[in-house]
Simulated assay, not measured.
Amino acid sequence: MISFAQVRIARPTNQLTKVIPFYTEGLGLPQLSSFTDHAGYSGVMVGLPGREYHLEFTQHEAGSPGAAPTKDNLLVLYIPDPTEFSKAVVRLQNLGYFPVSPENPYWQDKSFTFEDPDGWRVVLFRGTWGEVE
């Protein structure tokens, strides 16, 4: 088995200035790095503590369509602390983002689903994977 050291999930957006506050202020992910005009691309990396797992959002000066292909393309974030879970929901609502109905009913009573500025869905799960089935 290969020992991977880090994971980055990268995707384009046409709304970088809206995506950044959604993930940093709303979800509370720290901004790890950013860049401007690297071969026409600007972007930001946000991640989980420790930097082993992070997301990269890029925008090209000529445009970078970023609409989600379906409502069931999900980024699931597990939040074991009930207070932190509630704080994240309130922060997103204060930014103007409100829960949407999940495509898959599995998520209905265990979490809240939000759409980011590009329509990609983020599930905030109360607890950890395998804890509630």
Rank of each mutant, 00 (worst) to 15 (best):
M1S: 13
S3P: 01
A5G: 10
A5V: 08
A10H: 04
R11C: 12
T13N: 03
T13S: 12
N14K: 13
Q15R: 15
L16V: 03
T17C: 05
K18M: 09
K18C: 03
I20L: 14
P21E: 06
E25I: 11
G28H: 08
G28I: 08
G28P: 06
P30F: 00
T36G: 02
D37F: 01
H38K: 12
A39Y: 12
G40D: 05
S42D: 04
S42H: 02
G43E: 09
V44Q: 00
V46R: 02
L48H: 04
P49V: 03
G50S: 07
R51W: 02
E56K: 09
T58K: 10
Q59A: 06
H60P: 05
E61Q: 15
E61V: 15
E61S: 14
E61Y: 01
E61R: 15
A62N: 11
A62Q: 15
S64Q: 11
S64A: 14
P65V: 11
G66K: 05
G66H: 03
G66P: 06
G66L: 06
A68Y: 04
A68M: 03
A68P: 00
P69A: 14
D72T: 05
N73R: 05
N73L: 13
L75T: 14
V76P: 02
V76M: 06
V76E: 08
P80Y: 02
D81L: 05
P82S: 11
P82F: 08
T83G: 03
T83F: 03
E84Y: 04
S86Y: 02
S86F: 01
S86L: 11
A88H: 05
V89K: 13
V90M: 09
R91D: 13
Q93M: 11
L95F: 02
G96A: 06
Y97H: 14
F98Y: 14
P105V: 07
P105Q: 10
Y106Q: 03
W107L: 07
Q108E: 14
Q108S: 12
Q108V: 08
Q108N: 11
D109V: 03
S111P: 02
F112W: 08
F112H: 15
T113W: 00
F114I: 02
E115T: 13
D118P: 11
W120Y: 10
R121Y: 03
R121A: 13
V122E: 00
V122Y: 01
R126E: 13
G127P: 10
G127N: 01
T128L: 14
T128M: 13
W129K: 15
G130W: 05
G130P: 08
V132L: 11
